[in-house]
């Protein structure tokens, strides 16, 4: 009996529709968030993440409506984010039905945002999303959708985020994102061992073996992917069965 490793589908949206792209560019439509949420809830996903990757202020109400529609389909936890800049933004997302809020660029600019959210909703509701890009022997924190370097070390920022009250790290390898060559196990292990909170690995997944590797080699607590689930390339139930048979503790059958 121990904590299961989680499989988390991610819905990257433009506020309304699920979109997909490689290395954060070249977006195309990939479906209705509510329909996908209902499917993943039924197929045994352990949680769901929904992000507003456009994150424009004037389209915020549309995204909040998307969160409400997605939440109504779920009997599993929901994390939402993208463009969260203030405590009030976080409140709106929680009120719309999210259990957890992710913060990224705005938290790098103003780290107190993490403490403000954590004080109000508890550490378990605050997910610090970090986009990491390799730079020699280190990884740099990237902001603005992975396009700009914040000139900060990922390990150091992860530790600071946790000390400020983040209850989880959503770690995306910008180098691997969209490549489908596998998660960055080295990056993930380094962060997972550096912090006391769970780490969700993201970026680069395609094959079931990639998930075995990220749990066994990368010490991830959860693994996130998007298009391989949306396209039906990797059904969740079959993935969990594969993990189970390869000695990874998962919630299966589910």
């Amino acid at each position: 009996m121990s904590l299961a490793h989680r499989i988390i589908p991610c819905l990257d949206t433009d506020g309304t529709r699920v979109v997909k792209g490689v290395n954060f560019v070249g977006l195309r439509d990939a479906g209705d968030p509510r329909a996908l949420a209902a499917r993943y809830n039924k197929e045994g996903a352990d949680e769901l993440v929904v992000l507003d990757i456009a994150a424009s202020r004037d389209r915020r109400p549309t995204f909040l409506e998307t969160i409400r529609r997605v939440a109504a389909e779920l009997s599993i936890p929901l994390t939402a984010g993208g463009g969260i800049q203030t405590l009030e933004d976080g409140r709106a997302v929680v009120r719309a039905g999210a259990d957890k809020v992710t913060v990224n660029t705005a938290a790098v600019a103003r780290p107190e945002l993490i403490s403000e959210l954590s004080r109000e909703f508890g550490a378990q509701a605050v997910v610090l999303a970090i986009d990491a890009k390799r730079n020699g022997r280190h990884w740099d924190v990237m902001v603005r959708g992975g396009r700009e370097s914040a000139s900060r070390d990922v390990v150091e920022w992860a530790r600071e985020g946790v000390s400020l009250g983040a209850g989880e790290i959503l770690l995306t390898s910008v180098d691997r994102d969209g490549t489908q060559i596998g998660f960055d196990t080295e990056l993930t292990r380094e962060i997972s061992e550096a912090v006391t909170v769970p780490v969700i690995a993201s970026g680069g997944a395609k094959l079931p073996k990639h998930f075995v590797d990220i749990f066994k080699e990368g010490a991830a607590d959860a693994a996130l992917a998007a298009s391989i689930f949306h396209d039906g390339v990797q059904p969740i139930r079959a993935l969990k069965e594969f993990l189970f048979k390869n000695g990874v503790e998962v919630r299966w059958p589910c």
């Binding site: 009996m1 121990s2 904590l3 299961a4 490793h5 989680r6 352990d46 550490a123 378990q124 209850g167 989880e168 006391t196 909170v197 769970p198 607590d221 959860a222 919630r251 589910c254």
Partner: peptide, 28 residues
């Protein structure tokens, strides 16, 4: 251990439970 304790875990039933009646003991 990593905190918060976050995610799906199994439970061990100590005694007869009305809340858990009919629920498979291996569920998460």
């Amino acid at each position: 251990v990593k905190l918060p304790h976050m995610g799906w875990n199994q439970i061990a039933m100590n005694r007869e439970s009305q809340l858990l009646a009919g629920i498979d003991p291996s569920v998460y």
